[in-house]
């Protein structure tokens, strides 16, 4: 509901027969610095938590101390050894989970004339692959924009009709951007997918 207004569209056309439309909730380039800072912070946090868990393991004498003496000394610190497992393990999981959240969603449509279309949605976390699907041109029957009920709203969506499938493939299924963006993508995709009639 709030994210909807912040979606932005980036169109990339390397060649006349290729177009990529990316819709993202990521903040614009001016805040790139902040993104890097937060990435570094996340990295530090994540590493720290892993370290704490690891040292906790050490106190149980799991025999790793031998080959990493420097960190072994850290293990003698009081804090990790005092924390009981029942707090440490859920806490560590929560921190890792938080740190690995992407914080934004990015969904894209790649159109290649003569080949087909690829829809992809970024996963919610870093380090996991985006969900992608490729639809060859021969099985694309139509691309259209329609409306549907979603939650308390009626939203526009761009859908691809695939031959031999009962359900359509919704492009940008998580973000469901505004009609204006969808129309732009729809025009661009149509123009790119099919040979211009000359």
């Amino acid at each position: 509901m709030f994210g909807q207004s912040q979606t932005s569209l980036h169109t990339h056309r390397p060649t006349p027969t290729t177009a990529s439309f990316t819709v993202s909730t990521r903040s614009s380039k001016s805040k790139a610095f902040l993104t890097y800072v937060s990435l570094i912070l996340r990295l530090i946090c994540g590493l720290f938590v892993i370290l704490v868990v690891w040292t906790k393991c050490q106190t149980f004498g799991m025999g790793i101390r031998a080959w990493l003496p420097t960190l072994g000394r850290f293990a003698q610190l009081e804090v990790p050894s005092r924390l009981p497992w029942r707090y440490l393990l859920p806490g560590a999981c929560a921190v890792i989970w938080t740190v690995s959240r992407r914080g934004y969603t990015e969904e894209s449509l790649l159109v290649l004339r003569g080949l087909g279309m690829q829809v992809s949605s970024s996963s919610a976390a870093y380090l996991s692959a985006p969900v992608t699907r490729f639809i060859p041109t021969t099985s694309i029957q139509d691309i259209f924009i329609h409306e549907a009920f979603k939650g308390f709203e009626v939203r526009f969506y761009l859908a691809i009709v695939v031959e031999g499938e009962e359900d359509t493939v919704v492009v940008f299924p998580n973000l469901l951007p505004k009609r204006q963006i969808l129309e732009e993508v729809w025009r661009g995709a149509k123009a790119c997918l099919y040979e211009p009639k000359s």
């Binding site: 509901m1 709030f2 909807q4 207004s5 409306e147 308390f152 709203e153 526009f156 505004k178 009609r179």
Partner: peptide, 12 residues
């Protein structure tokens, strides 16, 4: 407040 008017897409 929760679903501001500005965020609602106007249909054609």
């Amino acid at each position: 407040l929760w679903f501001p008017r500005a965020n609602i897409d106007v249909a054609r």
